[in-house]
Structures are given as C-alpha cells and as structure tokens.
Design a protein around this nucleic acid. Structure first.
Lengths: 346, 346
DNA sequence: TTCAATGTTGCATCCGGATGCAGCCTGATG
DNA sequence: CATCAGGCTGCATCCGGATGCAACATTGAA
C-alpha cells in the first residue's frame, strides 16, 4: 500500500508483524486494526477492507494469545479423555477435532487416568482460558462445575451424563438402545440372554443395562446373567465372557463393542464355542472393527455424526445464553444387524 | 497471612486471583510474586516460600496466557496428525500426551487431512505460541521449517522423517526392521515373499520396503511381488492382499499392522486361504490388536516407550541449544513372533 | 447555511506477568 | 566504625490487542 510497507514485508523478518506496526505502515491507529478484525466493531467497510487487504499482503494476523488476555476467550476447547485405547473414543475425537478446527477452534487434549475425578486438572485448563471442555470420562464435583459455569465456561459431558449436576450433555439414548437389543434378541428366539457392563456405577453402563433388563422383562424373558466387570476394555470383556460363558447363556449383550470383541474371542478361543451358532453376541457403539469379517458384530450404533454436530452447536454458542441441562441432546441410535446373532429355534 | 487476605479467599469470587491482588494482600510488589514463580529469578528463599505458601492458601496460580505473552512460550506442544483411525498413532498419542502433561506441558491436537502438506496450518499454531510441534504425518516446506526454527520452535517429525530437511526426528529403525523381517521369513523357508507398502513415496514405507528387499537379496531370495497401495489402512491392506494374493506369494510383509490385519482378512475371507498354513503374514508396529487370538500377527514392534522418551527429551530442552538432525533418535525395534508365520518345508 | 445526529477514528488505559534498572539492606572487610 | 560488594526488592515499562470515551467527520434536516 504505502511506500514503507515494502520493508515490512521483507521475508527475513523474525517476529510476526504486530498490529501497531501494521497501523504505522498504514498511517492509522492500532485500535482501528483491532476493530477491523473484530466482528461487530464500529468501523467503516472501506477502512476495514483496506486493513484486511494490507494485513493479507504483509502477513499480519492478530495474536491470539494477546487477544485472549483481554477477552478471556481463547478459542480453545479442552477435551478430557481417558482410555483412548477404546476405538470408539477415537472415532469421536478425530471428527470432533476436525469440526472444531473448521469453526476456528483449537483442541487441547487432556488425558486423565481412567475413571478418576478430574477436578484437580481443571484449574490448569482454566489457566489457559479454555472456552469450554468436552468431558468424555470421569466425574466432576458440583463445586468445580459451578466454578466453571460462573466463569462462563461450558462443561459438556459427551456420550455420558453426570446425573447429579445440571449440565447439558450430548449422548445417545442408551436406555432405548438397551431395550432395542433386548427386543431383537427375544425376537430371534433367545431364552437365556446375559449382560456385561463396564462398571457397576458408570451411568452409561447402567442405562444400557437397565434398558436391556426392562426390555426383556416387558417381553417376559428373564435376564439370565449379569456381570459389571468389563471395564470397557477388550481384556475385561474377554474375562467376563469367560466367566459368564460357562453358565451357558444363549446370548450376551456387552455394553460396548470393544468388550464384545474381547468377549467373542473368549467364547471362540477360550471356551471353544462358535459365534453365533452356539451363542449370540451383541455390542454397542458400532466401531469400525465391528464390521470386519472376522467379527461381523451386531451392535447398536451410536449416532456419531449427529452427536458431534450437537456438541459443536453447543460449543459455538455466543455467550450470554446460559446453557443448562435442558439443552442436552439425547439422540437415537440404530441397531446394526450383522452376523453375530442367530435365530434360535425352539 | 495478613488480615485482609481473608476476603480475598472468599469462595464466592468469580475471577481467579491475580498476582497484583496477591501482592497487595501480602504487602509486597507484583514483581516479587512473579519472581517467586520463575525458576532462576533473584529472590530470597524465605520470600519465595512465603509467597508460594500464600499462593497455595489463597488459590493463586500465575495466568499462563499472560505469561506467554511476554515469554513467547506457552507450555503447549502441538501434535499434528492425520489418520487417527490407525491404532498405532493412538498408542503413541495417549502416552505422549500423558508424559507431556507430567512435564507440565499441554497438548494441542491438530488434525490434518491425510498426507497433505501442513504448511497452511502452521501459522495458526504459531499464533498460539506453541513451543514445539510433533508431526506424525504430512510434509512441511523448507521455507516453513526455517521460519519455525528461526522462531526458536522445534519441529519434530515423529515415527517418520522428512528427508530433505535438517530436522531432528524420532523414529524406529525402519530399514533394519524390514531386513529383520526378510531374514525371519527366509529362515522359515519362504521362497516367494511379497511386500505391501503404504504409499510409493512415504519415507517410512520406502525404508521398510528397502530393508526388506535388501535383506532378501542378501540371502539370495528374490522379491516375489510388491504393491504400494496399502494407504496405511485396513481397507487398503485388504484390497492389496486380494490383488497380490492371487499371484500366490508364500508370505506377505505389510508395512504396518493395520494393513496386515486387513490383508489377513482378505486372504482368509476374500480368497479362502488359511493363514499361516497357506501363506504367512507379517506386520509392523505391534499394535494391541496384533496380539488378539484371531490374528496372532507376527510383527516388527516399534519401541514405543523409548521413542516417547526420546521425544519428550527433545521437547523439554532448554532453548538456546539448537536441535538439529544430529539429535535424531533412530531406535531399534524387535521382531515379535506369533502365529501368522509358518515354517515351510523345501 | 447552520446545527444536530450518526458514524468513524484516535487516545489512553487495561488485561496479568516479565524484566531491566535503581535503590535499599545486609554482611564482610580493612 | 566506615566502606564496598552482593543480594533483594520495588518501580516502571513492556508484551499485543480490546475497549470506553472523547474528538472529529459526514450527512441530513431545518
């Protein structure tokens, strides 16, 4: 634009251009630069265009850190996760991160020991002016949740809920899913269906188990057996299936896919049973592995896409609108029938 | 401590305590607070203790954002990844993130479309004053790499290298791995070994393939077939195995495990072959799935732990010491023998 | 043509910590 | 007891943008 802009664009310069430098080059004030880059600021369209054009030319971009110092917003969303070995979480994490990126948000990954209270980690995240956190695991104290709400920060349990707190959450309708599985199994003629949960107190596991048990009860089939020691892992599912399998159920519903796969391997290799000839297996999540020919696992699919969209919508709300439990999204999933369930004659 | 500290600790306060507030409460200056929290600052041990104690009591923690504005360091490490569906990356990401956390560093997750140049994303990361980036995929232009080096930022290719650039990197000795696989297969009596790579130009795939080919050559066994269309995915491996399998090799070495698993399924379910009776399969990485009883995949294990330690060591270097390609860590892996390779008689 | 209302821009200051420099205090030395 | 060095602390200012308020420009109406 102006003449002395030339040396500013010198490729050799180290530090990135600051707003004041750009302002000087254009003969205007730093405030104007700032306004050109903020949405609703009072600035003439002509001036804004001029600034943006010059910025593009000279490679100026507002420094996010400095900005967040005053705005107290960072454009960063924290994601708290444990157990990333579970493919389901990965199949969430990847698209979620990418969607957030598209919306101009960054993703700060936070890995916590499985099942633990995450309170102790949160102040640290607050330090980074994280705008919101998506919690895929663990529990939060009411006290800490309140502190975050007070600070205008959204805490969003994803794919599970923390029943005691008034937090919005995004999850699949787990209870309906459990019920759907029960109906399917009964319809296919099963008489001795069993259930393997993740943890006895995990809200997710409890909901799926409850839906399953109620669905069976409604159809007059008793729950043949139950174990809550699957821990949402392959190994846990393997061990649980080994134990439960000896009692000869004719079907096992696992509260998630990775446990179901472990369970199938236990039934096949540990007990020498054949799935689905000797026993049917159903999972929950519909991770990619469930479709592999070795497993062909029938499973209740979580609506991953809609869940991510719902989360993104909540995360990109303008402040001011408080977001409470009423904004929760409880989305319906669908039963995906493959080959791990067989009709049993009677 | 002092009397008016009482109302500072009032649980109802919204914004976190600032250094100036804490200073006032203690009757000292903000500079002193700052010094108490920075490593090599000139401050008496007694004063530091007093400040830290009061800080703990009143819940003060220095604001990371403000700090990074002047220091130009943020304590954040960016991790650039594509293809998180590959369990290998997950098995790196999780422990790496946790280790970094232990060192007081945060992890900013950056997901880019697979195989793409990541240049366009990097300025954004620089905006966040990210201290370093760990690149698990993609390529960087020399220009951009230089810009980062100039800014005192470490760019660390992990588990692969970008041959043209003078960057340190952490990876497994892929060529040695390929050679070890060749030796094992020949020793087990294979005469028609084939190779499936990820991409024709991927440095990793090329190195593994070269080691394999050279190893075979040294032992006087010709490479029976080769395909570089595996794309590091299950589906790619499946397709490649289908194609290659028809030519009847007696063993296939896949450049990574996930392709190998796809390949095994293709051989078994697509071609009706039995592994290892009809054909042997070897992978690379040693992901958890490789040990599952359905697969029992023989594979060359990457030394994940040492690789992560090496990365953390490079990432936590004090500045000033330039880190160049000479600091690269090329770590040895080990062949894990399971049941997907069978000795072939004459 | 004049005055007011509206629209733009600049000035000054703030966000929370880091840091160069000056001033103070301590203790050791002569 | 005086003096000087070295160790600590406080003061002032900076990092890069955001923003309330005042000043100025523009436009339209009277």
């Amino acid at each position: 634009m102006t003449d002395d802009s030339a040396d500013e664009s010198d490729a050799g310069r180290r530090a990135p251009l600051t707003g004041r430098e750009l302002a000087k080059a254009l003969g205007i004030s730093q405030s104007t630069i700032s306004r050109a880059f903020s949405e609703g600021a009072t600035i003439s369209p002509k001036m804004r265009a001029k600034v943006l054009e010059a910025a593009r030319e000279l490679g100026y971009q507002p420094n996010v850190i400095a900005r967040s110092l005053t705005t107290r917003r960072s454009g960063i969303v924290g994601i708290v996760t444990a157990n990333m070995t579970n493919p389901f979480y990965v199949s969430i994490l990847q698209p979620l991160a990418r969607r957030l990126q598209q919306m101009g948000l960054q993703t700060l990954l936070f890995s916590v020991p499985s099942g633990q209270q995450i309170d102790s980690q949160l102040p640290l995240l607050l330090q980074y002016n994280v705008d919101a956190i998506v919690v895929m695991t663990g529990t939060i104290s009411a006290e800490m949740a309140r502190r975050w709400a007070d600070a205008g920060r959204l805490v969003l349990p994803f794919s599970y809920t923390i029943p005691e707190l008034d937090l919005p959450s995004v999850s699949c309708d787990n209870e309906a899913g459990g019920r759907a599985v029960a109906q399917h199994l009964v319809q296919m003629g099963h008489k001795r269906p069993a259930f393997v949960g993740g943890h006895p107190h995990s809200a997710t596991s409890v909901a799926r188990g409850r839906g399953f048990a109620q669905g069976l009860e409604e159809l007059g089939v008793p729950l043949f057996g139950r174990l809550d020691t699957g821990e949402y892992t392959y190994e846990g599912g393997y061990a649980a299936a080994l134990e439960l399998g000896r009692t000869r159920p004719d079907a096992i519903f696992f509260a998630d896919d990775i446990m179901a796969l472990g369970g199938m391997d236990a039934l096949r290799f540990g007990l020498g049973l054949s799935v689905p000839q000797d026993i049917s297996v159903v999972g929950f999540d519909n991770i990619p592995l469930a479709g592999w020919p070795t497993y062909e696992l029938t499973t209740f699919a979580q609506p991953v896409e809609p869940m991510i969209e719902a989360a993104v919508r909540l995360l990109t709300r303008r402040d001011g609108e408080a977001v409470t439990a009423e904004h929760s999204a409880l989305l319906p999933g669908t039963l995906v029938q493959r080959k791990s369930v067989r009709a049993r004659g009677r």
